[in-house]
């Protein structure tokens, strides 16, 4: 315990917690939208396709973060374009982008001679790589997301609940849909540092799914799911430090175990209630 306190105040840990806090905000807001809109699979497509951006940046020998950000936003826009009118075939189209993006990433990395850096960090997260400038970028992206949701909360809610009706009353549903996808890409990039592109899906879905049944409004679901995300990240960091294991996968396991426990408790409550009546 004493050991933890000293460690908490260390520069590294302070930075990690701050970064986790900033990422949780974006993750909670976007996770809620993704889960409530039944877009988890689309988010998965964006996250995996983003690996193509990692490969491209390595191949071109340019900074990775800006390239992945632009690449995944473009993927999100492309997904929006191909799925908005063809919701029925969305799963096939998303799968295509999902795999092709990853394949491109692998090819680009292979085409880069003598590249030895640890790519596992991008796929499964590496909290150690968070820098001060990352935190600065995270804060700006959070700010943009926050402003958007503050300005358009009612429209976003209307579109998320019933897109067809939203269109009838003149809400630009396609624009809101695109924005949700673009911010999903942004959230994926923010979370990439922590849990990596492959594990990001769990972080977007588990906290929000847990929050959904306890929230009377989309707003509350966003707040609650941000809190859950932060909790899982902090717990994950602490456990990974104790066990000396990679933080990203530990965060996901913490989230998964909590999810399982909550679901078991729910089943137990339902069983007890049915026995009482």
């Amino acid at each position: 315990m004493i050991e933890w306190v000293g460690w908490l105040y260390s520069d590294f840990m302070g930075q990690a917690f701050l970064a986790a806090f900033l990422a949780s905000i974006a993750c909670g807001i976007i996770g809620a939208l993704v889960v409530a809109n039944r877009m988890v699979f689309l988010a998965g497509g964006i996250a995996h396709a983003a690996y193509g951006g990692v490969g491209l940046a390595i191949f071109l020998r340019v900074p990775i973060l800006p390239v992945v950000t632009i690449f995944s936003i473009l993927c999100a826009l492309l997904l929006g374009l191909i799925t908005f009118k063809r919701q029925h075939h969305a799963d096939a189209l998303v799968s295509a982008l999902w795999s092709v993006g990853m394949a491109l990433g692998v090819i680009f990395v292979n085409l880069t001679p003598g590249y030895q850096a640890d790519l596992m960090g991008y796929l499964f997260g590496s909290i150690l790589t968070v820098t001060r400038s990352d935190i600065f970028i995270m804060a700006i992206l959070d700010g943009l997301l926050f402003m958007w949701i503050w300005l358009f909360y009612r429209e976003v809610m209307a579109v998320s609940y019933d897109m067809e009706y939203a269109q009838v009353i003149g809400i630009p549903a396609f624009r809101i849909y695109y924005f949700i996808l673009v911010f999903t890409a942004v959230a994926v990039i923010l979370l990439m540092r922590f849990v990596g592109l492959i594990l990001v899906l769990a972080m977007l879905s588990i906290p929000s799914y847990l929050s959904e049944s306890w929230s009377g409004s989309l707003k509350r679901m966003m707040v609650l799911s941000s809190l859950f995300t932060f909790l899982f990240m902090v717990l994950g960091l602490l456990v990974s430090y104790e066990l000396n294991l990679p933080a990203g996968p530990i965060m996901i396991v913490v989230a998964g175990v909590s999810f399982g426990l909550v679901e078991c408790l729910k089943l137990f409550w339902r069983w007890r209630r049915s026995k009482n009546y």
Binding site: A36, F152, I171, S217
Partner: peptide
């Protein structure tokens, strides 16, 4: 979308958005 986190009041309130224009309705 039966699981959607919204109450009856908020759902009905979206019907008022049709009459609104501008940035923040």
């Amino acid at each position: 979308n039966k699981d959607f986190p919204a109450n009856v009041f908020d759902i009905v309130l979206t019907g008022r958005l049709a009459r609104k224009r501008g940035f923040r309705r």
